[in-house]
Every structure is written in structure tokens, then in C-alpha cells.
């Protein structure tokens, strides 16, 4: 350690505030550098690429907004992928949120075995999607899969051909994704639940509030910031669903599970249409931005930050 730093009263030193500011930026620097190099630059580059026709291997050709015009007017698949992504999001987000909340409430107790259950429900989150999807393909097998076996035992004579019909392929992807996502949301909800002061429940009990009233008037309102967070990250995640689709169905059958990011990936790395893929990526960004902005705006009506 140098002599100056060991003498806090040395003259001509920077003010404390200034030093703290510099230290702050230094702490930020590693992350900031990564962000600038791998994200910010790529974002700017992708905007530029989206205005070109580029196969990655030849020189890009500037074509203005043609990619955007094409995808909005000429690409029949773009509408399909929008619908599929919307379908996935509208079902999977509420499902994973509600189930996660239920689990969190169930596990927000002091019972001994609870950490074990929490771990079990969290395991899918940290398991690679590719591995999970491969296993689920077996679960979904119409003849030998465990899912149809269970349905059959429950008295359903002709359980669905999960992955090979257009009706059931997307629900299959949703089931897998909810199963995988729910543990993460559960942990966030648990953290939210534990931040609620027990004194409120005690006071409510003394006033004669029942379980349901306590849940309705204490837990739910005080959990709204957590719910808001869960909703935002789930929606953003859902709009970008990709690896589950790739492994489980490959976007099929007949494009029934083709989502936006799958479309981007195939256009970019199978057909080598980088410009077009970048344009689709920007459409996705705009969608995510709008949805998130809307949620941000609406939160004033239902999110309570008082605790």
C-alpha cells in the first residue's frame, strides 16, 4: 500500500465523492466493456445489416428498407411465426406464473423437507434445454411415452400424438417450457414472499382476517412488484423461445411450432440471409420493447411498492 493512501488527511487529494465516482466506474468497467463490445456494437451492427442483402460470405449490398417491406408483405411465414410466438407467450406466461406462485406459497413454510422440494423444482432451470428436450421427446412418444401412459390410465382412450400433429405440437413445447421455467419464477416469488413482514399477517389475524383474506389483501398486493418482474422476464423469454423448439419439433410439423427466433436462426444460418434475419430480429426487438413499455405504463395501476 502506498504512503498516500495510508494517510487519509493528506492534502491536495481528490474529494471523497470524486474518488467514489471513479471507483464506481471502475467497478462497472468490466461489465460495461462486455456490454459495449458484445451487445451495443452488435445491436448497432445488426441495425445496419438489416438494411442490406448479405449472405455473410460476399460483400453486403445496401437495399434500404427492402427486408422490412419483404417480411411485412411477401413472407407468408412471418405471419405464421408471429402467431406461433404469440400463442406460445399467451399460454406459457400465465401458466408458469400461476403455477410458480402456487408452488412458492406451498413451499414458503418452515417444514424440514422444504429445501429438498425447492431444489427439485429448481433443477429443470439449471439443466440444459437440449438435454431436457431430448428426454421430453420420450415422454411425448405416443406409443411408449410416460405421458400418454398416464393419460391412458386416467381413462383417455386415444391420447394425442403430441409432437407430430399441428394441434398438439405447440402445446407440447409449452408444457416443456413451463416445466422448465416454473422453478425460476418460484424462487423469485419465494424471495418476494419472505420480504413481506409477518407483523402484517399477525395484525390481520387479530382483526379477524381469514386465510383467503390475508392472501387477497396482504400477500397479493405486496407481491405485485415481484409479479411484475416475473411477468416481464417471462414475456421477454417467451418471445424468444428457440432451443426447446429446435430440439423438440424442429419448428414442425409444417411450421406449426416455428417461432420468431427459430425463423431468424434458419434465415441466418441455413439460408444465409443475414440481412433478412437481422430485420426480423429488429422486428422482435421492437415487439419486446413495445410490450415491455406497455407493461411499464400499466404497472401504475396494479403494482404496489409500499411494504
Amino acid at each position: 500500500m502506498s504512503e498516500t493512501t495510508s494517510k487519509p488527511t493528506a492534502p491536495q487529494r481528490m474529494s471523497l465523492g470524486r474518488r467514489e465516482t471513479i471507483a464506481g466506474y471502475l467497478f462497472l468497467l468490466p461489465n460495461l466493456l462486455g456490454f459495449v463490445i458484445f451487445t451495443a456494437l452488435a445491436v448497432v451492427a445488426s441495425a445496419a445489416i438489416s438494411l442490406t442483402s448479405w449472405d455473410l460470405l460476399s460483400d453486403p449490398e445496401f437495399i434500404g428498407l427492402q427486408n422490412y417491406i419483404d417480411l411485412l408483405t411477401h413472407d407468408p411465414l412471418f405471419r405464421t411465426v408471429l402467431w406461433n410466438t404469440f400463442y406460445f407467450t399467451v399460454v406459457s406466461v400465465p401458466a408458469s406464473t400461476v403455477i410458480a406462485l402456487g408452488l412458492a406459497l406451498m413451499f414458503n413454510t418452515g417444514l424440514r423437507a422444504i429445501p429438498l422440494f425447492r431444489t427439485m423444482y429448481f433443477l429443470p432451470v439449471i439443466t440444459a434445454t437440449v438435454v431436457v428436450a431430448l428426454v421430453w421427446r420420450w415422454f411425448f412418444n405416443p406409443d411408449f411415452g410416460i405421458l400418454n401412459y398416464a393419460l391412458f390410465r386416467l381413462g383417455i382412450d386415444s391420447p394425442p400424438n403430441w409432437l407430430s400433429t399441428r394441434t398438439w405440437a405447440m402445446p407440447s413445447v409449452i408444457i416443456l417450457s413451463v416445466w422448465k421455467q416454473v422453478g425460476y419464477n418460484m424462487v423469485i416469488f419465494l424471495a418476494g414472499l419472505q420480504a413481506i413482514p409477518t407483523t402484517l399477517y399477525e395484525a390481520a389475524s387479530i382483526d379477524g382476517a381469514g386465510r383467503w383474506q390475508r392472501f387477497r389483501n396482504i400477500t397479493l398486493p405486496l407481491l405485485t412488484p415481484t409479479t411484475f418482474f416475473v411477468l416481464i422476464i417471462s414475456i421477454i423469454g417467451s418471445l424468444q423461445v428457440f432451443d426447446a423448439v429446435l430440439v423438440l419439433t424442429g419448428g414442425g410439423p409444417a411450421n406449426a411450432t416455428r417461432t420468431i427466433v427459430f425463423h431468424i436462426w434458419e434465415e441466418a444460418f441455413v439460408f444465409l440471409e443475414m440481412g433478412y434475419a437481422a430485420a426480423v430480429a429488429w422486428m422482435l426487438f421492437i415487439m419486446v420493447f413495445l410490450v415491455t413499455a406497455l407493461q411499464w405504463k400499466l404497472q401504475k395501476r396494479w403494482v404496489h411498492y409500499e411494504a
Partner: peptide, 13 residues
Amino acid sequence: ASAGVLTTAAAHS
């Protein structure tokens, strides 16, 4: 929101 969406783009470059 920003990091996630543009991973695809980042992978390109």
C-alpha cells in the same frame, strides 16, 4: 430486454 433479444445479432458478429 436489450441483452437477451440481441443475442442472435451478437452471435452473427
